[in-house]
Design a protein around this nucleic acid. Structure first.
Lengths: 247, 247
DNA sequence: TTTTGTTAGTGTTATTTTAACACTTACTTA
DNA sequence: TAAGTAAGTGTTAAAATAACACTAACAAAA
């Protein structure tokens, strides 16, 4: 594989919903170039690499994600390019990049993608996990490598907008059968705010793409919840009629 | 100026509101590589150029726009990168690019920006206009150069989303003093749909950042309209409270 | 000076949506 | 059988939406 040029990369912000802990996490790759970085997260970066000369940006993102994490068939969404000349902050980072890629690196413009996945279903490659990859809580991400904290902030904005506009398949985040509580929790984690349970359920009741299964949870130490499934076709149809709020 | 690399460019989609004609237009640059292109628009492209090695992407877009059109102090918004290996469609285009930039071109990834301006205020440089630059109606843009028709389609989507989310200063499009009819027309042109006049005005009445001036139009052959102005500070403040629609 | 043409401006109503709020039910485990 | 836990449910007041048609004020033409 020959790289398109040494100045263009893709980076992947993978959001994972941890249904157990009810937390939103991101997948980071651990470098070891700052051995004594106890406080910050300077060693943590998003999976990313240089773009090859025969692939589109989308293809590049898919490939890089697969190579670095084992994750495939993930719906990655490009959301922004980052090209500040000073986005490589430390000399150690530049040196690490040059060693890592085996090319001279001056400046790298990166095209950033994000994806939403369910941690317990799409698990990254186990041997990679042990080695270099980690899920970390999204609120626990100060001072990541390069400008990756900034990239994370922008990816969250994009995610929230896309989520509201239904441009994003957030339902990948839930198990096939889910409860309304899990659904609400997902909304709250993505949008970063809390909703009233009854009002939330009233709204969901109108969304014909969330269909009750007539089954119940079992084995839980409380009243068992109804289970629902998500109807992709109806969801796609429902996307049409959204241009009603302005100003 | 040395280029960062010959594979990375910026392109600027400049939307201009023509208050007279009440039309939304885009600014295109005319090449002459297809002398007999009578039907299509293969010779028309957005202003764009290669990124220099010492500038950020945003700086590059500002510079390129200024060099090619004379426009400056325009608020450009990055919305997407385009990197399909086949986005240069014709050999003639590749040859033109190589002649034009004086470098070998294989493939160019471009970072696309858009801006909204008022045609009668920010006029592009007159001598450039006569030569190479033209405003064309936005519905009149089939088959532009490279993948620029696709870029245009994506820029409109981004514009509409940003407009609804108030991430964009659409009020740059109007004269300092404007009528509600002009305002409504702007909304309709950007969002591509029509609104009821009375309901529109009711909504506007609640937007405290659109303030009546107590003046009227004059010289018009009908009942003169009230004039309004736009209050930037109040607008910025009003942006905070938008996270109320979900699902 | 009157008429004509043109756009500005305005209010009501029925329907839908929102937001706030608290108790009972059904299950497991102790 | 009691205690603990999350599920599930309805009302109401306030606000937002959507549909709808006539009069007012000006310039230009007759």
């Amino acid at each position: 594989m020959s790289v398109l040029n040494p100045s263009l990369s893709v980076d992947c912000v993978i959001f994972g919903l941890d249904t157990q802990e009810q937390a939103l996490k991101i997948l980071v790759y651990e470098r070891d170039i700052f051995p004594d970085d106890n406080s910050g997260n300077k060693n943590l970066k998003f999976p990313g690499s240089l773009v090859a000369d025969d692939e589109s940006l989308d293809e590049s993102a898919d490939r890089v994600l697969k190579e670095l994490t084992g994750l495939k068939n993930i719906c990655l969404k490009q959301f922004r390019a980052f090209g500040d000349p000073a986005r490589i902050k430390y000399d150690e980072e530049r040196e690490w990049s040059e060693r890592h890629y085996g090319v001279k690196i001056d400046r790298v413009v990166t095209i950033a993608y994000y994806a939403l996945i369910r941690i317990d279903e799409h698990n990254p490659d186990q041997k990679l996990i042990k080695d270099k990859l980690r899920w970390i809580n999204i609120d626990d991400t100060d001072n990541l490598a390069f400008d990756h904290s900034y990239i994370l902030a922008k990816s969250r904005e994009a995610l929230q907008q896309d989520f509201i506009f239904q441009n994003v398949m957030a339902f990948e985040l839930l198990p096939k059968k889910f409860t309304l509580q899990q659904l609400q929790s997902m909304y709250e984690l993505i949008l970063g705010s809390k909703f009233d349970k009854r009002n939330f359920r009233k709204k969901i009741g109108k969304a014909e793409y969330i269909v009750p299964l007539g089954e119940k949870q079992n084995g839980v130490a409380h009243k068992p919840a109804m289970l629902f499934r998500f109807d992709h076709k109806k969801f796609e149809r429902s996307k049409e009629g959204i241009r009603n709020f302005f100003i």
